[in-house]
Design a protein around this nucleic acid. Structure first.
Lengths: 232, 232
DNA sequence: GTAGGGCGAATTGGATCCAATGTACAATAT
DNA sequence: ATATTGTACATTGGATCCAATTCGCCCTAC
């Protein structure tokens, strides 16, 4: 229990949060060159915390750094998008399997509340966060914290593209809502195997849609996705 | 192929490499308080690159940092060790499955060479690296770079304990050697399902041994593994 | 004797300054 | 005209300096 008003966040963390937001929202597009002074001046801080933030973001895979050349918003290839979603499916099913025997009625009610909230949400970003919250609520009882951290890292990398897709197809929201409701129902039924099957289908259908969208986008604008890394 | 004598590494990277080595080897034991000037003075550099290195190590999960309190070598609970190995099994089997159809004779020969080298190696650290190299050689054809990165991150966290185990039981080396040879044989046979099964058994038996060892160590010295994080 | 408060040393976080390196442009030679 | 080289500028990496916060110790009061 800490008094938030007194204990303010380190500047470096604030900077990394802002930069992460800028990258996520597309304000800093993929491939963009990031200069330390520019960021420092924009945010009214020195270059030191900016450097720290860049280190953090590099570790998160959101940017790449080259010696004496600077930082660039990470590009991501179509193959990597595909791989990420395959990995997500693998990890999420693993989490769900391990969570199922430990999911309580209270967990289900929390999840249900999130589902209802998501129906009433029009803001795309908020809805996405609720989507993630729903899944995490069902995974948390597994108590596999490391796996959930790893999953969070993956989500961080692909959120950009997922966000883009959600923004243009709100119909997916209803589809996802129905599927979430179905998942809750089948969890209550007690059929664990069927629940995992349904969850896998849900995740993979979602993945397919995102990949389809990114593929189409890549066709329309080949520059948005680099086929090869590091073209000098 | 780079001329190492001309293009020298950034100091920050050198520092993080050294610290990583110190943590891995146990020279910096779990829970140890790390002070920036101490490291800086020891290595003859300023605090700036040390700070960067600490950031990197925190992202890798090897240390934790608390505002104005400093950095501490990460403690890891028995539950986390168990989880890590379950995750490793999941990821490695996934990689192996996807690699199998693409493994060429050349890959097998490289793997075989590593197996032979490992037999002739007495140094525990070198042997461990060869062990990792063997597995990675078999996973690389999957071209799932993100998954391999994730796996590397996991290996980084548990290497400390694995290393400890290897140091005291060289008999495991022979067992592992035989199993590696078996895996190569069954890959050549073309039975992919059997190959994955064997790989899973190999990984899990290895995991069991490490966990058993860590459990015993924890019993003998309860302080080495904290049951609860953050006891103030 | 013990609990509480305050002062000082130690340590981290952030800002500023200097050095090393890469890039771009221009001048010159072929 | 083009290629090459040299030089100036822009940007990052590293060192030093100052501010903010924590922890330990001692002193005091009850």
């Amino acid at each position: 229990m800490q008094t938030a008003s007194i204990n303010l966040e380190p500047v470096a963390k604030q900077v990394s949060d802002v930069l992460r937001q800028w990258i996520m929202s597309g304000h800093l597009p993929a491939g963009e060159h990031i200069r330390q002074d520019a960021i420092a001046e924009d945010l009214g801080v020195s270059r030191a915390p900016v450097r720290e933030a860049l280190l953090t973001l590099e570790a998160e895979g959101l940017i790449t750094r080259q010696k004496y050349k600077g930082a660039f918003v990470a590009e991501i290839s179509l193959a990597e998008v595909r791989e990420t979603y395959k990995l997500r499916s693998l990890l999420e099913c693993f989490l769900f399997e391990n969570a199922l025997p430990r999911i309580t009625e209270k967990d289900l009610q929390r999840a249900e509340k999130i589902v209802h909230e998501s129906l009433a949400t029009t803001n795309s970003d908020d809805w996405m966060q609720l989507n993630i919250d729903f899944h995490m609520t069902l995974y948390e009882p597994s108590q596999l914290t490391l796996t959930m951290q790893t999953l969070n890292g993956l989500l961080l990398r692909t959120d950009r593209y997922f966000r883009l897709q959600q923004a243009i197809s709100p119909s997916v929201q209803h589809k996802s809502h129905d599927e979430h409701q179905e998942i809750l129902d089948i969890i209550r039924s007690g059929d664990h195997e069927a629940a995992v099957r349904l969850m896998r289908e849900h995740i993979e259908s979602n993945s397919d849609e995102v990949i389809q969208f990114v593929e189409d986008g890549a066709k329309a604008d080949p520059a948005s996705l680099p086929p090869d890394p590091d073209t000098p």
